[in-house]
Amino acid sequence: MKSTLLLLLTISLFSCSSDSDTANDNTNLPAEAMYFPPNGSDSWETKTAASLGWDESQIQPLLTYLEQKHTKSFIILVNGRIVMENYFNGHSATTPWYWASAGKTLTATVTGIAEQEGILDINDKVSDYLGTGWTSAPLAKENLITNRHLLTMTSGLNDALGDDVSPANLQYVADAGTRWAYHNVYVKLQDIVAEASNQTWTNYFNSRLRDKLGMTGTWFNSGEDLSVYASNTRSMARFGLMILNKGKWHNDQIINEAYVNQMTNTSQDTNKAYGYLWWLNGKASFRLPQSQLQFNGSIIPTGPNDMFMALGKNDQKIYVIPSKKMVVIRMGDAADGSNVALSDFDEVLWEKISAVIDL
């Protein structure tokens, strides 16, 4: 099975928890309140590994592994405070880097904000916003596809035709909701938000999310109409911290908690390890991009069961672990040659992290 998994994980794509009992296990957590760094400032509170009882002798092996695996930046937050922040291979705290498919989670979040504002409904048909003919599927089949299907990768459109999301390349395979398949058609949600808000996607994103969190970063077109985000590493950490805190930043509820819960839990019956463009650890089974095979067990067996993840090509990572009030960020080049969002790197990385933290 391992060899089959590795074969699947070499397929190229771009832009590409346990249950509540585990998530609510707050043993060994720091007692202090959640911290949020100020907007418009480089200041950020820190904690030492020693103060948290971590095994400091295992930190250097972790850092050595990260550097060997072409990492550019690595951050661990606990209760919002920086415990580890390291830069490698000429990267710095101010250098922007692309999120690849980890940025799908930004799209899912902003879609929820738009629904919260009452300008769209995720249960509406996509064609209610984009008009008919946005795919080449028969009209009756196209009209089955809702915004929720784009969020859950269950559009029923052909995932074997590459990243192009022009109508001619969006072809019917199965009725929406009956088949899980990782597909970049999710990017149409950005067009839906733009149409519903009567402004550009970038302007809406910046005003509703980026600026409120004090993030930096810009969207750029990677080709074939795929919109990819790039920012510095702390901006990625800010976003992960807001999601860890159930959509709240300081005293501002950016996105409602109910939607965050939906977004970070199983969203459909076919792939238990997938929410609204977030990957979920600790589930009984999972599926992977470009495959209809189902694998038993957790995606990252060495990682915490309640962890959920934003995963991008060449090992861009946001790991959120509610039971530890922890966010882990990794940016860089592919750990082992070009790969998709998930690889053996994740398993070994979490072995190294666990040696430090004793998860």
Rank of each mutant, 00 (worst) to 15 (best):
M1E: 10
K2F: 12
S3Y: 09
L9V: 02
T10S: 14
S12C: 12
S12G: 14
L29H: 06
P30M: 06
M34Q: 13
W54C: 05
Q58P: 01
I59D: 02
L62A: 03
L63F: 13
L63W: 01
L66E: 00
L66P: 03
E67S: 07
Q68Y: 02
Q68H: 06
T71D: 01
T71W: 00
F74L: 02
I75K: 00
I76F: 01
I76D: 00
L77C: 06
I82C: 03
M84D: 00
M84G: 02
N86R: 14
F88A: 01
P96S: 10
W97L: 09
L106K: 02
G118I: 06
L120M: 09
N123R: 13
D128R: 13
D128A: 15
Y129K: 08
G131L: 10
G133N: 11
P138R: 10
I145M: 05
R148F: 04
L150I: 08
L151V: 00
T152G: 07
D159L: 05
D164G: 06
S166L: 09
N169A: 11
N169E: 07
L170Y: 02
T178C: 05
K188C: 05
V193C: 04
S197N: 09
T202A: 12
N203Q: 11
N206R: 13
N206D: 15
S207K: 14
S207D: 14
K212A: 04
L213H: 09
G214K: 05
G214F: 09
V228T: 13
S231Y: 00
M236A: 15
A237I: 07
I243L: 15
N245C: 09
G247Y: 07
H250P: 00
E257I: 07
N265F: 02
S267P: 05
Q268M: 00
Q268V: 04
T270C: 04
Y274W: 08
K283W: 02
K283H: 11
S285I: 03
S291T: 14
S291P: 04
Q292E: 14
L293V: 10
F295S: 05
T302C: 07
T302G: 10
P304Y: 05
D306N: 13
M307H: 03
F308R: 03
A310G: 15
L311M: 13
K313P: 00
K317D: 08
K317A: 04
I318Q: 03
M326N: 09
V327F: 05
V327Y: 08
V327R: 04
D336H: 10
S338R: 12
A341F: 11
L342V: 03
F345I: 06
W350Y: 15
A355P: 00
V356W: 01
